[in-house]
Amino acid sequence: MDSRIKKSFIGKRLFIFLYLSVMLVNFSIPFLLPPRITGAYLFWVILPLSVIALSFTAE
């Protein structure tokens, strides 16, 4: 058998949890927010910024 592949930048469990959580909120919350700049627009600014911030901390 070949040696193990080195680990990803985020672990499997964290990846699955994050992916599902992010997609769940992404496909629900914006559609419930009022039609304002501080509604879905701001949500879709904060969401990717959060993911990018996480990326910087990943090993």
């Binding site: 499997k12 994050l18 969401l47 993911v51």
Partner: peptide
């Protein structure tokens, strides 16, 4: 966001 997460893993 999907792409970034997929790439990280």
């Amino acid at each position: 966001v999907s792409t970034v997460l997929l790439l990280l893993y």
